[in-house]
Design a protein around this nucleic acid. Structure first.
Length: 651
DNA sequence: ATCGTGACTTGGCCCCAGGCAA
DNA sequence: TTGCCTGGGGCCAAGTCACGAT
C-alpha cells in the first residue's frame, strides 16, 4: 500500500482514485475490515490512544488530513452515477455518537427564598432553563415570546416535579445560582490552558476520525451531523407556540440506521446499548434517523455539504435554474397574459407568479396551529398589504421563514404594465375580504407547482429564487475590464460584495446587529471623526506655515516641520480617512444583511469562479475552505463561463 | 384526489479560533 | 501580550416538495 504520508506531492488525480481512496478509507476510518474481531480491536485501540502523546496526535492529524485529501481527490462529477432511482450502491458508516448522561452539579435552586434540592432529572431541566440568556431571543421582554417560553417550560417541568412538590409556581423560582454556576463553567472553559485545549481538540479529532466518515460506493465521504442533538429546551423562532418545551434525550435504541446490506452495519459504541433498527434503503441519502418529540418530526444524519450526494443535487439545482433561464420569457409571457384572465383561479395564479418572480417570495405553504404564524406568497393575508390613497404605493409587511420580517414599500408605478396589472389584481383581491383572509385563497403550493412543472419539467416555485439570485449576481458583477483597473484585491472584493448584497436584499436575507457589532461600528465612526479633526489641524498648521507665522506651533516640535512635511502628512491622513470611510460605509450597509445564505445556497458558484478568473482574484477570497470544498465541482470552469440558458433535457 | 409526512434544502444564531491593533 | 473584533463553521429550526397511503 502506498504510504499516505507521501501523498502530499502525489498527483492524486492522475492515479486510479478508486484505489487511492479505498486505501485511505481503510487506513483512516477503520470501518472496512470484514473481520469483526479486527474491527473491534481497532476501535478499542482508537478509543484508548487519545493521550497527549505528541507522536500519536501528529499521526491522527495526518490521518485526518489524508482523509480530507482522499475526499477531495474523488471527482464525482467525472464518475458514473448509480442506477436510476438509487442514491448509492454500497454504504458503510459509523452511526451516531452520544453525549454522556447528565451529571448533577448539586447546586440548589431557590424557591420563594428557600434553597430546594432537586432530583437529577428535575435539576437537568432547571439547568436548561438557567442556561437561557435573559436578553436572548427566547427570554428578552420585547417580542412576546418570553411568556410562551416560560409557560411551556413550566408545563413540562411541573410534570417532572410532580403534584406534591414544594415548587408550585414558576414566578417564585429563582434559577440564578445555577446560572452563576454555568457562567463559572464557561469562564473556566475560556481560561483553559493551551495543554487543556490540545486535549480537548484531541478528543474532538478522535470523535471525528472514529465516527465522522462514511464510505459510499467505495469512496470516502465526510458525514455532516453525526452527533446526536443533546436534550434541551426547544428554541423555536419568534412567537412559536412550542418554544420552551423540553426536547427529550434520544437514546441509541430510538435511532434507525440506514446502510448497505453487503457491508457490516455500524457498531453502537454506547456500552450495553444497540440501535433501534437497521435498514438498507438505497433510494434515500440518510445514514441515521430519529424522531424528535417537540415538533414530532424526523431528523436525519446525512453526508456533509462537500459530499458527492449533496454536490450532485446542488449541481442539478443550478442546471434547473439555467433551464428556467432558457424559457423565462415564455413563462413570463404566460403569466402576463393571465394577469388579465376572467378566470379567478388563473388570475390569482398569475398574480402569485408575478410576486414570486419579481419579489423573490417563497411559495408559502399552509401551517398548523402548532407552528409560528409565518407566511409566504400563497398564504399572504389581506392584513399584510397596506394600500395608500394616492399612487400605486403598497406596503407589504409580513413575517416570513424563521419569523424574519419582510417589509417593503413597493411602488408599482415603477413597474411595467404587467406590474401595474398585478397591483390592480392584488387590490381587487383584497377588497371585500376580511383582514385575516388569504389574498390568494384559490392558490396552494401544490397546484402552483403542478402548473409550473407543466410549463417546464421540474420547475417549482423555489427555482425562481435560484434563477433570479444567480441571474442578478451575474448582471450586477462589474465587467473584468473595469475590475482589472482596480488597485487592490480589497477593492475588487468590495465590488463583488456589492453584487452579493443586492442578491441578499432581493432574497431578504437578514441578520441581527449584535450589541458588540453596534458598539464596534460606533467606535469606528468616532475614529473617523478623530481622523478628520486631526486633518483639519494639519491643514490649519499648513496655513500658518504658509503665512510664515511659525512661532505659534514651534513649542510642539523638536524640529519645526516645513510646509512640505505637513502636506505629505495631510495626504496620508486623507488616504486613511478615505479607507476608513469606505470600510465604514461597507459595514453600515452590510450590518443587517447576511451575504452567506445566498452565497451558499442560491448563487451558482460557477459565476463567481469565472468572475475570479477574469478579474484575477483568488477564489479563496470569496469562498471559505468549506465552501470551496462544497463547490469543488465548479472550480474548473473557464473564465468565460456564463450562467446561460440551458436546453431542457427532461427528467 | 386528498392528505399527511418523509426527505431534503435553506437559514439565522451562537460560539470560538485566530488575526490584528494597541 | 492582551483585548477586541470578525468570520467560519457547527447547530438545529423551518422551510419546500414529492410521494405514498387512503
Amino acid at each position: 500500500m502506498s504510504d499516505s504520508s507521501s501523498s502530499d506531492d502525489l498527483p492524486l488525480s492522475r492515479l486510479n482514485h478508486q484505489t487511492v481512496v479505498r486505501n485511505r478509507a481503510e487506513d483512516v476510518v477503520q470501518i472496512s475490515d470484514k473481520g469483526k474481531g479486527t474491527r473491534k480491536k481497532m476501535r478499542r485501540a482508537s478509543c484508548h490512544d487519545s493521550g497527549s502523546d505528541g507522536e500519536i496526535s501528529a499521526m491522527k492529524r495526518k490521518k485526518m488530513k489524508s482523509a480530507e485529501q482522499g475526499i477531495a481527490a474523488f471527482e464525482w462529477w467525472n464518475s458514473p452515477d448509480p442506477p436510476e432511482g438509487k442514491a448509492w450502491q454500497t454504504l458503510e458508516h459509523c452511526g451516531m455518537t452520544f453525549e454522556p448522561q447528565y451529571k448533577p452539579h448539586g447546586i440548589a435552586m431557590v424557591y420563594d427564598g428557600v434553597p430546594i434540592s432537586l432530583t437529577p432529572y428535575q435539576e437537568e431541566l432547571a439547568t436548561f432553563y438557567a442556561a437561557m440568556p435573559e436578553d436572548g431571543p427566547q427570554l428578552n421582554v420585547s417580542g412576546g415570546q418570553r411568556e410562551i417560553f416560560q409557560r411551556n417550560f413550566w408545563d413540562d417541568w411541573h410534570k417532572v416535579l410532580g403534584k406534591s412538590h414544594a415548587i408550585k409556581s414558576f414566578d417564585k423560582c429563582d434559577f440564578s445560582d445555577i446560572s452563576k454556576h454555568l457562567d463559572r463553567l464557561k469562564f473556566v472553559k475560556r481560561a483553559a490552558s493551551d495543554a487543556e485545549k490540545v486535549v480537548a481538540r484531541e478528543l474532538r479529532d478522535d470523535c471525528q476520525l472514529r465516527s465522522g466518515y462514511a464510505i459510499l460506493d467505495d469512496h470516502l465521504e465526510k458525514v455532516g451531523n453525526f452527533r446526536m442533538e443533546p436534550p434541551s429546551l426547544f428554541r423555536g423562532r419568534g412567537k412559536h407556540p412550542k418554544t420552551g418545551v423540553v426536547k427529550l434525550r434520544v437514546e441509541p435504541d430510538q435511532v434507525s440506521i440506514n446502510c448497505g446490506a453487503s457491508r457490516p452495519p455500524p457498531i453502537c459504541l454506547e456500552l450495553g446499548r444497540s440501535w433501534g433498527e437497521i435498514k438498507h434503503d438505497d433510494t434515500v441519502t440518510w445514514l441515521s434517523t430519529w424522531h424528535e418529540n417537540v415538533m414530532q418530526s424526523n431528523k436525519y444524519v446525512m453526508l456533509a455539504a462537500n459530499s458527492s450526494l449533496k454536490g450532485k443535487s446542488d449541481f442539478k439545482k443550478f442546471q434547473k435554474a439555467m433551464q428556467l433561464k432558457g424559457c423565462i420569457e415564455r413563462v413570463r409571457h404566460g403569466y402576463h397574459k393571465n394577469l388579465k384572465s376572467k378566470d379567478r383561479h388563473l388570475k390569482q395564479q398569475a398574480t402569485t407568479m408575478w410576486l414570486i418572480d419579481t419579489l423573490a417570495l417563497r411559495v408559502g405553504g399552509e401551517k398548523s396551529e402548532e407552528e409560528a404564524d409565518t407566511v409566504g406568497c400563497c398564504s399572504l393575508r389581506v392584513e399584510h398589504f397596506t394600500f395608500h390613497k394616492t399612487g400605486k404605493d403598497v406596503d407589504l409587511e409580513f413575517l416570513g421563514k424563521d419569523s424574519i420580517l419582510f417589509k417593503q414599500s413597493i411602488d408599482f408605478a415603477g413597474f411595467d404594465e404587467h406590474g401595474q396589472q398585478a397591483y390592480d389584481n392584488i387590490r381587487e383581491m383584497c377588497r371585500s375580504k376580511k383582514k385575516n383572509e388569504q389574498v390568494f385563497e384559490l392558490i396552494e403550493p401544490t397546484s402552483l407547482n403542478a402548473h409550473l412543472s407543466s410549463i417546464m419539467p421540474g420547475l417549482t416555485a423555489k427555482v425562481f429564487r435560484t434563477y433570479n439570485a444567480s441571474e442578478t449576481l451575474q448582471n450586477q458583477l462589474p465587467d473584468a475590464e473595469h475590475v482589472l483597473e482596480m488597485r487592490s484585491i480589497g477593492d475588487k472584493l468590495i465590488a463583488y460584495n456589492e453584487a452579493n448584497r443586492i442578491v441578499a436584499i432581493l432574497c431578504n436575507h437578514q441578520r441581527t446587529v449584535s450589541a458588540a457589532a453596534a458598539t464596534g461600528l460606533e467606535a469606528q465612526a468616532e475614529k473617523l471623526e478623530q481622523l478628520k479633526d486631526q486633518r483639519r489641524e494639519l491643514q490649519n498648521m499648513r496655513t500658518t506655515l504658509k503665512a510664515g507665522k511659525d512661532n505659534a506651533e514651534a513649542h510642539r516640535f523638536a524640529k519645526l516641520p516645513d510646509e512640505k512635511d505637513v502636506s505629505k502628512r495631510i495626504d496620508i491622513w486623507t488616504e486613511k480617512i478615505k479607507k476608513l470611510e469606505i470600510d465604514l460605509r461597507n459595514k453600515e450597509e452590510n450590518k443587517e444583511v447576511s451575504l452567506g445564505t445566498s452565497k451558499a445556497n442560491y448563487l451558482d458558484p460557477r459565476i463567481s469562479v469565472a468572475w475570479c478568473k477574469r478579474c484575477d482574484v483568488p477564489i479563496e477570497k470569496l469562498f471559505s475552505k468549506t465552501l470551496k470544498q462544497k463547490f469543488a465541482w465548479a472550480l474548473t470552469v473557464g473564465s468565460s463561463w456564463r450562467f446561460e440558458a440551458m436546453p431542457i433535457t427532461d427528467s
